[in-house]
């Protein structure tokens, strides 16, 4: 393939993509989308907010004015950060913290895209004594078949004495493998069950008329689950480094003085 562009022109485009002013515009766009999306959610619920704003490329204001949705804003921020990493960041030891922060953000946004595009989130509701191996989607449609079955042995909720404040929700379950072997496990708040690439979280419960309790788990099939962790690690490191470096370098010679004068 023949490259018709001069390298200088490419760098020029890269530099304008890396522009700080673009960053500011995008961050303000992000802030207003978050604000608007939350208000939208208060009005129409989380599902509508996800569909219309948070997981949308285009958001239609009043139904006909197209505005960039959160995915677009995320993608643009990613491009802006990438260009900044290539053309704007100054690779000095002094700026190591800032560099780590920006790379961490790149990874975080990338992870967000991977997870939102590839991860499946399902639900599973079981009555006590019932077992099942098929997960359903959030809207109730049958989703995917698990390579094992899950049986709810007992659901127990404990209240703080004399109150209706829940102290704990606990589901005792059995994981029944394809060959019939089973093991028992516990799923509770802040204590999910991870098995076979799926993670089961205690989500809600119901007590039916006949007194039998049922328990609902949200089930996540993880892809790229490690990405936000790696990104967080980079960000922690970068923030700590930057923060400590600023303190170590001394308050007297510090931040605003380094800001470029207009």
């Amino acid at each position: 393939m023949k490259n018709t562009m001069r390298p200088g022109a490419l760098a020029g485009i890269g530099r304008s993509l890396a522009s700080l002013k673009l960053t500011v515009v995008l961050l303000l766009l992000l802030a207003s989308l978050v604000l608007g999306g939350t208000a939208w959610q208060a009005e129409h619920g989380l599902y509508a907010a996800q569909r219309d704003v948070f997981a949308a490329w285009v958001f239609l204001l009043f139904g006909f004015i197209p505005l960039p949705g959160l995915l677009t804003a995320g993608l643009l921020l990613f491009v802006n950060l990438l260009a900044a990493a290539a053309f704007r960041l100054r690779y000095r030891w002094r700026h190591a913290g800032l560099i780590l922060i920006h790379y961490g953000l790149l990874l975080l946004i990338a992870g967000g895209f991977v997870i939102s595009l590839k991860t499946g989130e399902y639900f599973l509701t079981l009555r006590e004594g019932e077992s099942a191996g098929v997960l359903s989607h959030a809207d109730g449609q049958a989703g995917i078949r698990l390579p094992f079955a899950l049986k709810l042995v007992d659901f127990e909720k404990v209240m703080h004495p004399g109150t209706d404040i829940p102290k704990s929700f606990t589901s005792r379950v059995e994981v029944i493998a394809g060959d019939g072997r089973s093991r028992s496990a516990v799923i509770a708040m802040n204590r999910p069950l991870r098995t076979g690439g799926y993670t089961f979280y205690q989500s809600s419960y119901a007590e039916e008329k006949d007194g039998v309790e049922s328990s609902t788990f949200s089930v996540v099939r993880n892809s790229g689950r490690w990405l936000p962790y790696a990104a967080s690690a980079l960000l922690f490191l970068g923030l700590a480094w930057h923060f400590l470096a600023q303190i170590a370098c001394g308050w007297k010679r510090s931040p605003a003085a380094k800001g470029r004068k207009p």
């Binding site: 939350t38 996800q50 967000g112 802040n190 993670t199 979280y201 089930v219």
Partner: peptide, 18 residues
């Protein structure tokens, strides 16, 4: 990270997160 450990998602557009 807490949300991922407890509820299975790192970010869920919960109003407090927003």
């Amino acid at each position: 990270i807490w949300a991922d450990q407890s509820w299975g998602r790192f970010w869920g557009w919960d109003p407090k997160e927003n």
